[in-house]
Amino acid sequence: MQTRQLRGFLFDLHGVLADSWQYHLASWQTIAQELHIPWTDQLAEILPGMSREDSLTAILASVDRQSEFTSNQRLRLTNHENDLYRQYVAALTPANCLPGVTAFLDELVAAEYPMALASASANAPAEIAHLGLTKYFPQIVPAENLRASKPAPDVYLAAAALIHQHPEDCVAFEDTVTGVRSAKAAGCFTVGINVKDLPQADAMLASTRELSLSAVQQALGQLSV
């Protein structure tokens, strides 16, 4: 692989730093039950990485009911899901960080690499605080400023700008197909973290336990930076 510059690290939140997608899924499952829509394995598989609006659309489309709701009704439903999810966020602790994450972040800090959180979630600052990761992420993309959610590149372009780096010189970490598409569209070298292959990812790790600076450098085709 051609050697690339390595100047910054950009992180998705859900499924990369913490296993918090399970709480979004639990919230959406509650919404589906309230709407008398069957919850399926397919929904559980496709929702991670989607925006709140797209998640609701997918749930309604699973039973061909997307035309039944006005924009105001849809907004109430997405706000309801967010309220449910925030109850889970309030219960997060550093113990919810995925294995190996804090050790890897410490390694990047020691090597003086800038980092930013590339999450489109408006709850991201609160989640990072509850997880005890605020010191690593003084730079968090303001979700309210994004014009488009993943798989659009907006969040990664914004994250790279926060640390004053070109996206092409940044490594992005993602755990979903949607997230990988977003990072790649921005031009980032993208590491997928998933037991399943994520198309378009430049490199794959089965879990966060495999995270290390040397592993990233090896994937980039360089032994030192």
Rank of each mutant, 00 (worst) to 15 (best):
residue 76 R to M: 02
residue 176 T to W: 08
residue 191 V to L: 14
residue 189 F to R: 05
residue 59 I to D: 01
residue 219 A to L: 11
residue 128 I to R: 04
residue 65 R to E: 10
residue 60 L to P: 06
residue 173 F to I: 05
residue 186 A to V: 00
residue 146 L to I: 08
residue 48 P to A: 14
residue 25 L to M: 06
residue 182 S to Y: 08
residue 124 A to M: 07
residue 157 L to H: 15
residue 161 A to L: 09
residue 158 A to T: 00
residue 57 T to L: 07
residue 55 S to W: 00
residue 206 A to H: 09
residue 212 S to E: 01
residue 179 G to F: 09
residue 11 F to E: 01
residue 110 A to H: 11
residue 218 Q to H: 10
residue 159 A to N: 05
residue 212 S to H: 07
residue 91 A to S: 13
residue 18 A to S: 13
residue 127 E to H: 11
residue 113 Y to K: 09
residue 33 Q to L: 07
residue 55 S to V: 06
residue 54 D to Y: 07
residue 14 H to T: 01
residue 42 Q to E: 06
residue 103 A to I: 14
residue 139 Q to E: 06
residue 212 S to F: 08
residue 163 I to Q: 06
residue 116 A to Q: 07
residue 114 P to W: 05
residue 209 R to M: 02
residue 204 M to W: 06
residue 177 V to G: 01
residue 54 D to R: 15
residue 25 L to H: 09
residue 165 Q to T: 02
residue 147 R to P: 00
residue 217 Q to E: 08
residue 132 G to V: 09
residue 82 N to C: 11
residue 98 L to R: 15
residue 183 A to P: 04
residue 48 P to G: 15
residue 208 T to Q: 06
residue 61 A to Y: 15
residue 59 I to K: 01
residue 43 L to A: 01
residue 164 H to E: 11
residue 140 I to N: 03
residue 212 S to K: 10
residue 200 Q to H: 09
residue 96 N to Q: 09
residue 168 E to D: 11
residue 206 A to T: 13
residue 150 K to W: 05
residue 88 Y to T: 00
residue 118 A to M: 10
residue 80 H to P: 00
residue 75 L to A: 13
residue 55 S to H: 01
residue 145 N to L: 12
residue 11 F to L: 13
residue 131 L to E: 03
residue 74 R to Q: 08
residue 197 D to Q: 14
residue 199 P to G: 03
residue 72 N to K: 12
residue 101 V to R: 13
residue 164 H to G: 03
residue 99 P to K: 08
residue 9 F to K: 10
residue 20 S to M: 05
residue 24 H to V: 05
residue 173 F to T: 07
residue 56 L to N: 03
residue 169 D to N: 08
residue 51 S to V: 07
residue 25 L to E: 05
residue 114 P to T: 08
residue 152 A to F: 12
residue 130 H to S: 05
residue 116 A to C: 04
residue 89 V to Y: 12
residue 44 A to Y: 00
residue 138 P to G: 06
residue 112 E to Y: 15
residue 158 A to G: 15
residue 30 T to H: 02
residue 82 N to R: 14
residue 136 Y to Q: 02
residue 65 R to M: 04
residue 27 S to Q: 07
residue 200 Q to P: 06
residue 36 H to F: 12
residue 222 Q to A: 14
residue 95 A to E: 04
residue 150 K to H: 09
residue 32 A to H: 01
residue 78 T to G: 05
residue 80 H to D: 03
residue 36 H to V: 00
residue 195 V to I: 09
residue 62 S to A: 06
residue 63 V to G: 09
residue 95 A to Y: 12
residue 163 I to M: 12
residue 194 N to E: 08
residue 158 A to Q: 13
residue 51 S to H: 02
residue 77 L to V: 14
residue 192 G to F: 10
residue 196 K to E: 04
residue 23 Y to N: 00
residue 44 A to H: 02
residue 31 I to Q: 05
residue 6 L to T: 01
residue 49 G to H: 07
residue 139 Q to F: 04
residue 149 S to V: 03
residue 183 A to H: 12
residue 102 T to Y: 10
residue 202 D to W: 11
residue 23 Y to S: 01
residue 175 D to C: 12
residue 125 P to A: 08
residue 219 A to R: 14
residue 130 H to A: 15
residue 66 Q to R: 13
residue 46 I to C: 02
residue 50 M to L: 11
residue 42 Q to P: 00
residue 74 R to T: 04
residue 205 L to K: 11
residue 58 A to W: 02
residue 56 L to S: 01
residue 13 L to R: 09
residue 45 E to A: 13
residue 143 A to D: 02
residue 3 T to V: 10
residue 166 H to C: 02
residue 44 A to C: 10
residue 110 A to K: 12
residue 54 D to H: 14
residue 101 V to L: 03
residue 72 N to D: 07
residue 161 A to E: 13
